[in-house]
Design a protein around this nucleic acid. Structure first.
Lengths: 234, 234
DNA sequence: ATCGTAAAGTTTACGGTGTAAAGCAATCTT
DNA sequence: AAGATTGCTTTACACCGTAAACTTTACGAT
């Protein structure tokens, strides 16, 4: 089956294109992402890339998908590096890994969670499942914590906003996730909070206010967990 | 002084350019922002715009500055529409106005708080003071609340993270703002939280999870205030 | 009232972008 | 060995920001 070898070659070419795209973006930001730039770096003519991607948007979508998966991999790895017996420590590690990935790959993070490319709009049916993978890591941990003795309901986060309940229930049943509505609610809340801090940091809006953003973030997620009713220490 | 009239004409031209820029962006997103597009809409040749702006970046900076001021105006207006005797209600109104402005002007909000234009980077010395104007509205209200009987310290938000204190103190003394470190800390925390929710909403990441984002936001800021130790009702 | 000047706008041009169309050469399939 | 497919090049088009030179308009001072 030479077809296999050829498919492998094609896969390698696609990988090379994505690698140089990422490399150029790392150097010059999203402005460095251009068909012609990639082609030049690969010693090809620009239209040659259209053998592998139908358009620049198509390439961007591929990059975004990879990013979401890389982020999810990182979170899962951070979770699995700690003992299952301490889900609180795992959650803290995962949230720190979330920020760390964003700080280490700012352009990629923006590509996914901002909208940095004029004219480009990510196809929902591709990005939504990819986002879910990361989110599931957080929800899974919070679910285990909520069911453990490390959790003690703490107002105002001890109840689910009534208006929110139907939506949460629908997500759980339709998605088939075996989690409680409370765990899902706390996850959404927490996600919004860490996302906000990270976005403000990425665009340099809070450095002047808080100084060291890493320790600020660290402290805030600890406090957030406490406010949620999650006890630190084992 | 005919000079005055000419300056007025020049001002009107600049305003017309900014208006059409905003109009094009509202229709086609940040991709619609182009010198040539604006020129065509105004029945001018592209280089003619360089009489009023030295570059496209220059125009973008002007738009961003206007946005920050418009947002700050909106917040101040929301604050002043309610009696001074109820700073808690004022704060809630201001935070709702913050989201409402973002929802009403999504592209403008992205232009300010995202980084949607490849190759463009906002000059810090211009944007920072503009950001401060909005932030000051929030800090001012929280300061008044903290000093009132509506505030009762509530763990874990009753203390300031030790690492954070020097930075906050420096901001207060150097900026000359007559606010307590606690008010500033709570403001930063709150800002990060509402910012995160709004960003996730703008890029359609939480709609599937929470359904009605407006009521979710509303509920979350109420809970956040309670967690901070701010009592609702008068 | 006129002249010099400055401002506003034009034309032209250069180098950049994404990508469609056609053609060529090598390789795989039968 | 013949035909089809794949990878790639050449050419071309329509867009982009903006620099340079030139023309037109309107003003301020003499």
């Amino acid at each position: 089956m030479p077809k296999v070898r050829q498919d492998a070659l094609r896969g390698a070419a696609i990988q090379a294109i994505k690698d140089t795209a990422r490399h150029l973006m790392a150097e010059q930001g999203t402005a460095g992402l251009s068909v012609r730039g990639i082609a030049k770096a690969l010693h090809l003519t620009p239209p040659a890339l259209y053998t592998y991607f139908t358009s620049l948007d198509d390439l961007i979508t591929a990059l975004i998908t990879d990013n979401f998966n890389a982020l999810a991999d990182t979170l899962e790895h951070a979770r699995d590096a700690l003992p299952v017996e301490d889900p609180v420590a795992q959650l803290e590690a995962v949230m720190n890994a979330y920020r760390q990935w964003a700080v280490d790959h700012p352009v990629d993070f923006q590509l996914n969670y901002g909208n940095p490319i004029p004219g480009y709009h990510a196809p929902r049916e591709i990005t939504v499942p990819a986002v879910v993978r990361s989110f599931v890591v957080i929800v899974g941990l919070i679910e285990r914590i909520v069911q453990s003795e490390r959790y003690a309901p703490n107002p105002p986060y001890d109840t689910i906003p009534p208006h929110l309940q139907p939506a949460l229930r629908r997500v759980i049943t339709e998605g088939g996730y075996p989690v409680s509505e409370l765990a899902l609610y706390l996850s959404v809340s927490g996600w919004g909070e860490i996302h906000g801090i990270i976005m403000l940091e990425l665009f340099h809006h809070i450095q002047a206010l808080v100084g060291d953003t890493a320790t600020y973030y660290q402290e805030q997620i600890r406090r957030m967990m406490r406010a949620f009713g999650i006890r630190p220490k084992g």
